[in-house]
Amino acid sequence: MNNMPLVSVYVPTYNRIELLKRALTSVLSQSYQNIEVIIVDDKSSDGTQEFLTEMAKQDNRVKPILKEQNSGACISRNLAIESAEGEFITGLDDDDYFLPGRIAYFVENRHLLNKYSFLYTHFLTLTKSGQYKKTRYLDMAMPNEITSRDLLFKNIIGNQCFTYTQRMKDAGKFTPDMPAWQDMDLFYRMLNNSEQKQARLLRQSLYVQDTSHDLNRITLSNKEKIHRAFTLFCERNQVSGKYQDILEAQLVSYGLKVRNSLFLTRLRTNTKPYFYLVDAFLFLKNQSNK
């Protein structure tokens, strides 16, 4: 095991101890064992800090960071990234979990990081009915490679990736004052700022997003936050003109009405067949929005 690279897994958490226990178990039971699990608690009041302190005694791969004040998930993630000692890094939300071979799958494909900025996978959703379902329509049509400009059409990455730890640090980590789209903002910067200008999709689904519970997800945002995130994203990443129009059409997914002309801009600019299908869906949804 010591001949294999150390992989850091960061997990932000706040007042979801039972879900956190499942998430942590899913990491510690991975088939690939040379890992460190950095769990940053955002000053929970449900016994999380005591649980993490005890787990660290039982397994030295568990490395808790216990915050003295509540400051949000992005700051929690950044604290974990800053302290990560692994050559590679990936993340997990505390209400989600890994399937057993996820980290091994990434490590087996780490050679691809010579060409790609980061790797990502398909994922599954656990529904209230207890069923697993694919979260992306037309999975087989998704491109194997994407660029930062492709993210303007749709954030098809999801919320986690696998990369060299230093690359994530060099990209500036997560931006705490982004009210939404924090993941996409980081991915966009990683793709623009590294020598490798593309990311690579690995097609196994080894990450489960749990939507079956009634607790708020870390990434949940309202329409006002989405509008603010769109504005900040464009300002900070210097997205303007037709590329701003392309991104603005994504707001339809959050129940916001946009100008139909935005879809014509996307049609003229698109170079990947998958996004024509995305545009058709967004356009129809836009017609139904009030």
Results as ranks from 00 to 15, higher is better:
50 E>C: 03
161 C>T: 13
124 L>G: 09
96 D>S: 09
28 L>A: 10
186 L>M: 14
104 A>E: 15
171 A>C: 14
78 N>S: 05
275 F>L: 06
66 L>C: 02
69 Q>T: 10
194 S>D: 12
279 D>W: 01
22 R>V: 11
220 L>I: 09
254 Y>A: 08
34 N>R: 00
129 S>L: 09
209 Q>A: 01
95 D>Y: 07
34 N>T: 00
125 T>C: 04
266 R>E: 06
140 M>P: 00
102 R>D: 00
16 R>H: 11
157 I>K: 10
270 N>A: 08
266 R>I: 11
89 I>D: 00
257 K>M: 07
228 R>I: 06
66 L>D: 02
240 S>M: 06
80 A>M: 05
271 T>R: 14
223 K>V: 05
16 R>I: 14
198 Q>M: 11
134 K>I: 00
289 N>S: 03
261 S>T: 08
282 L>R: 12
72 G>S: 03
158 G>C: 09
64 P>R: 01
29 S>Q: 13
279 D>F: 06
212 S>T: 04
186 L>C: 07
200 R>W: 05
213 H>D: 07
195 E>I: 08
26 S>Q: 05
49 Q>H: 05
161 C>P: 03
183 D>W: 13
54 E>A: 09
70 N>S: 14
201 L>P: 02
115 K>C: 03
256 L>H: 05
159 N>K: 03
193 N>G: 05
118 F>M: 10
141 A>M: 11
77 R>P: 14
35 I>C: 13
29 S>T: 15
82 E>S: 14
5 P>E: 00
39 I>E: 04
152 L>Y: 12
252 V>H: 04
221 S>K: 10
220 L>G: 03
180 A>G: 07
16 R>L: 08
65 I>R: 11
219 T>R: 13
24 L>W: 00
138 L>T: 05
124 L>D: 15
134 K>P: 01
1 M>W: 08
275 F>G: 02
287 Q>S: 09
245 D>I: 01
208 V>C: 12
194 S>R: 01
170 D>A: 12
18 E>G: 01
146 I>A: 06
183 D>A: 12
263 F>R: 12
256 L>I: 15
65 I>C: 05
126 L>S: 02
40 V>K: 10
71 S>P: 07
111 H>T: 04
138 L>W: 10
147 T>R: 12
179 P>N: 04
101 G>S: 09
65 I>T: 03
96 D>G: 13
139 D>C: 08
99 L>R: 04
288 S>A: 15
237 N>L: 07
250 Q>P: 03
5 P>I: 00
49 Q>R: 10
191 L>H: 10
191 L>R: 11
172 G>S: 08
7 V>E: 09
233 F>A: 07
134 K>G: 07
190 M>E: 00
68 E>T: 13
107 V>W: 09
44 S>V: 12
11 V>H: 03
216 N>F: 06
2 N>R: 10
204 Q>H: 07
102 R>M: 14
289 N>H: 13
264 L>R: 04
60 N>S: 11
70 N>H: 12
164 Y>L: 14
198 Q>S: 10
251 L>G: 00
104 A>N: 13
20 L>G: 14
189 R>D: 04
142 M>W: 03
59 D>M: 06
19 L>S: 11
123 F>H: 15
51 F>N: 04
9 V>T: 03
290 K>Q: 02
165 T>A: 10
76 S>T: 02
128 K>G: 15
21 K>Y: 00
72 G>Q: 04
229 A>T: 07
80 A>R: 08
15 N>G: 02
183 D>G: 05
10 Y>C: 15
125 T>V: 15
17 I>D: 02
